[in-house]
Design a protein around this nucleic acid. Structure first.
Lengths: 134, 134
DNA sequence: GACCTTGTGAGACAATTGTCTTAGGATGCG
DNA sequence: CGCATCCTAAGACAATTGTCTCACAAGGTC
């Protein structure tokens, strides 16, 4: 009986991102940040989204002050993890490698990132598989 | 005026996958395939999903026979592309490289795929890295 | 105390998604 | 022909998402 993780719609994700950035925020603070970032939402909309996030257990609120202070209870890493897994399951036969290949083929990495990737690969399978049949 | 691509909900995606696999299918054929794959849908549900996909322009139907024959008008590659781009935009600052790193760090690749990845990397920046502007 | 200002609570309301029911047209068979 | 099938059309209906309106409480201000 694993309760499936709640879905996070786009609008809620935008609000969650603000909380990740600042650590915590009131409705008004989140609103300002979102406005600055181009979202033209009303105060009530942000309040609703935070409320829904709390219902889903993804943020919690400190209600001791007049304006509630919201804090995320889920990390961006965890959300990334979920989204990536879901994508891999749904469109890459559960094979993360296929997604990696797809990404590399359609978007060139800059030199730094390419190097990092090589490093990770090298560390992965112990040493570096130098020669093999080709 | 770019009309944003239609969203493809999970249930529709499942039906679309059947069409990709078989090339085309009637409602009943799709239903059978989905049943075999564990989806316990009614005939009408599959019909509705195909209809919605057609409305969105993602499949087209040949109506010359009694039972319409549906065919996808979008490739799985294209859907993958869209999903990946959206994921990268929303959770990886638009940096595909970050997603690649994340994937490699959390899921080890098998040797073959690792090799493939190296190949792609090598071809990418025309050989070894470590060179400034070109 | 009478008034603003900020906040929350409750819920409206349309679009989308997930799934199905029902009505009626076309076909096949005795 | 008459009836059982199979098919599509139309739409019901609840849950979720995207956004907002309205009413009303708590606190400051003069």
């Amino acid at each position: 009986m694993a309760k499936r993780p709640p879905t996070i719609p786009d609008s809620e994700l935008d609000v969650l991102k603000v909380l990740w950035e600042r650590g915590q925020a009131t409705v008004r603070e989140a609103l300002e940040t979102l406005r600055a970032a181009g979202r033209q939402w009303s105060y009530a909309t942000v309040a609703t989204l935070l409320d829904r996030l709390e219902t889903k257990g993804l943020v919690e609120s400190d209600r001791s002050e007049l304006a509630f202070v919201y804090r995320p209870t889920i990390s961006s890493q965890e959300v990334q993890q979920r989204r990536v897994n879901s994508l891999v399951d749904k469109l890459y036969q559960g094979e993360p490698g296929l997604l990696v290949l797809h990404l590399l083929k359609s978007h060139a990495l800059d030199a730094n990132q390419a190097m990092e990737v090589r490093d990770v690969l090298d560390q992965m399978s112990g040493g570096k598989p130098k020669k093999k049949n080709v």
